[in-house]
Write a protein that binds this DNA or RNA. Structure first.
Length: 282
DNA sequence: GCGTCCAGGTCTACC
DNA sequence: GGTAGACCTGGACGC
């Protein structure tokens, strides 16, 4: 329930059964994508595929991707220690919240983040659906599709993104980004392990057309860097409702509100303003 | 039915 | 470094 990514293909979320379904890409052209169903039983996470046989290599790839998507290797104790003194935030520890769902690749998260900018959430879901259903490799068993590769996206003309994906002015951004990544000129996956400071990495991200202040902040959170706030219209409106008597708050006021959480302020903010999502569901 | 606004913003030109 | 105006889409809203 951490954020809207669960509703963007090739993720699907079944609220009744608390199951995440996800199409994962396997290595090599001979291995078509596979659909996995993921749910939780206590501290156990079950991952089921619809395929009868998986090679060791495929199983290892699926395990790696699931660990990455759910951040199972991310150390949360420092974040919990940072929020523990504040009674308004100790629910985060009780719920074990804070692991923001992410895609198996930085590229996918980057494309999706551009799809969230300057439009309604409904339009975001439609753009992502268009990309996945038209360009993603199909799963043999169920007709679902993987997220398209940079190569598949680079092969399409800009008009495809404008006319079919309905991406509007973002069409040129997708074409250019996919081409740079597919050619090897831009290695966005390296951002995960970059040793650049957050400010330096943010500058690099903003060199991608379509990535501005909000989009870069959002990507940094997905990479595991939480010292940016990622303020967008929804966050500002929700902050106003929760903490400013419904009145629009200056960005500096929002920053001051979460400053005490230091390098965890972005994650503390996000947990705070989505608290009702999780509490309603629980 | 039509016009306007704006949503999980960014880019460019200009100062 | 700061800011005005343009930019696609599509749903909500007022008239």
């Amino acid at each position: 329930m951490s954020h809207g990514w669960r509703a963007l293909l090739p993720f699907e979320f079944d609220e009744a059964g608390w199951t995440i379904t996800r199409v994962l890409t396997l290595e090599g052209d001979r291995s078509p994508p596979v659909t996995v169903h993921i749910n939780f039983h206590g501290d156990t996470l079950d991952v089921n595929t619809e395929r009868r046989k998986l090679s060791k290599r495929d199983a290892a790839r699926i395990t790696r991707d699931v660990r990455h998507m759910f951040r199972l290797d991310e150390e949360m104790s420092l974040f919990y220690a940072a929020v523990a003194p504040d009674p308004d935030f100790d629910w985060i520890i009780k719920e074990g919240a804070g692991r923001l769902l992410r895609s198996p690749t930085v590229y996918e998260d980057l494309v999706k983040t551009i799809c969230t900018t300057n439009c309604s959430w409904v339009l975001t879901t439609k753009m992502v659906e268009g990309l996945v259903k038209h360009l993603g490799r199909p799963v043999a068993e169920d007709g679902r599709h993987a997220f398209p590769t940079p190569e598949a996206m680079a092969a399409e003309p800009e008009s495809f993104y404008r006319d079919t994906v309905r991406a509007g002015y973002r069409a040129g951004y997708f074409k250019e980004l996919a081409g740079r990544v597919a050619s090897g000129e831009l290695d966005v996956e390296s951002w995960l392990t970059s040793e650049l400071s957050t400010a330096e990495l943010k500058r690099e991200m903003k060199r991608v057309k379509g990535v501005g202040e909000y989009a870069a902040d959002n990507l940094l959170k997905l990479l595991g860097r939480y010292d940016c706030l990622a303020l967008d219209s929804w966050v500002r409106a929700t902050f106003a409702r929760l903490h400013n008597k419904g009145r629009t708050a200056d960005d500096r006021k929002i920053a001051r509100h979460y400053a005490r959480f230091k390098e965890w302020r972005g994650l503390a903010l996000w947990c705070d303003i989505t608290r009702d999502w999780i509490e309603d569901e629980v």
